[in-house]
Write a protein that binds this DNA or RNA. Structure first.
Lengths: 165, 165
DNA sequence: AGCAGAAGTTTGGTATATATAACTTTATAA
DNA sequence: TTATAAAGTTATATATACCAAACTTCTGCT
């Protein structure tokens, strides 16, 4: 029934921000939304009206702003994508914290749910598989500076896997 | 000197498409650009003018369309990002071919060069590290259906690494 | 040469998302 | 309780990027 109503990236960002604010202050406020999105207060109202028309937020002029159930579902999914992508960028690819956040903020709109689900599984696999793990990520970090593998070292490294099992 | 002139995602897409067409037909043509971007012919002209003003393409009305050196540099970088991201999605995350392409097409604008560089290293590490490799990716595929690790199997799996070195 | 059709452009209109500035409503505090 | 500030809204304007349809230029064919 609502499969085609794809939200713009901006509207998705609004929902995500509203969810964050709601989690802190119970309700979101126009001023705070503007601040978080780095835009002017006046630009927010029109977008709130759009979200309201789509029944994603409860909105009355000068009133409280809260997510509807449907809005919360979407916002949660976006937030989930953000968290997962950031985790991958930060913990695996070794991108610095703030930058991971900034890039995740853009990537979350490009990746759909099934793709993020696979990323979740992949990260989970890295964390659980004896052939991977945090020591393996450390090897990756070293690999990044060395570029070449030292096979003697590899032998040593593989042996570490055995100790895990 | 040109650090702040960030292109919009759309302009980046135009450059990428023009590079592709140029590689096939030496020059790009308005009609082909429209076709590749799934838009109308009339929409292309204005964008070509913008790219021309930014000195990213050589453009005269009714004339040939080619990338300038600067335009080619940017287009190549975008194309490189696309290829790398697609490779990760397809070969590692096991996203189907066409979908990998479509998502890469959107992600390429969200990830900057340093981040893609790290992704390159990561994929290269997966391909080269004895603890990873294609057999490890196969283990990931199995992990996706099973969700849980079988430690007996893990022992077997780790032994495979040893045979590599 | 000249005509038809293809390719390219222009024009006018739409949708999205923003800014700025003036205005209204709500909240605060003397 | 009423002035004032803060928060929110409205109106106008801008930038991006698209479409549809009319128009222009170019190309190939006879």
């Amino acid at each position: 029934m609502d499969g085609k109503n794809k939200l713009s990236e901006n509207l998705e960002d609004y929902l995500e921000v509203i969810l964050n604010l709601q989690n802190i202050h119970k309700v979101a406020r126009s001023k705070e939304i503007a601040k978080k999105l780095n835009i002017q207060r006046g630009s927010v109202t029109g977008m709130l009206k759009k979200l309201s028309k789509k029944k994603l937020i409860n909105y009355e002029p000068y009133g409280f702003i809260t997510l509807t159930k449907k809005g919360e579902e979407i916002a949660s999914e976006i937030q989930r994508r953000h968290t997962i992508i950031k985790d991958f960028l930060f913990r695996v690819l070794q991108i610095e914290d703030k930058k991971s956040d900034a890039i995740a903020c853009r990537m979350e709109h490009a990746m759909d749910k099934p793709t993020v689900d696979m990323l979740v599984k992949f990260i989970s696999f890295i964390d659980k598989c004896p052939r991977a793990g945090t020591d393996w990520i450390q090897e990756f970090i070293d690999f990044c500076s060395d570029t070449e593998l030292d096979m003697k070292r590899c032998k040593n490294c593989v042996n570490k896997c055995l100790t895990k099992i």
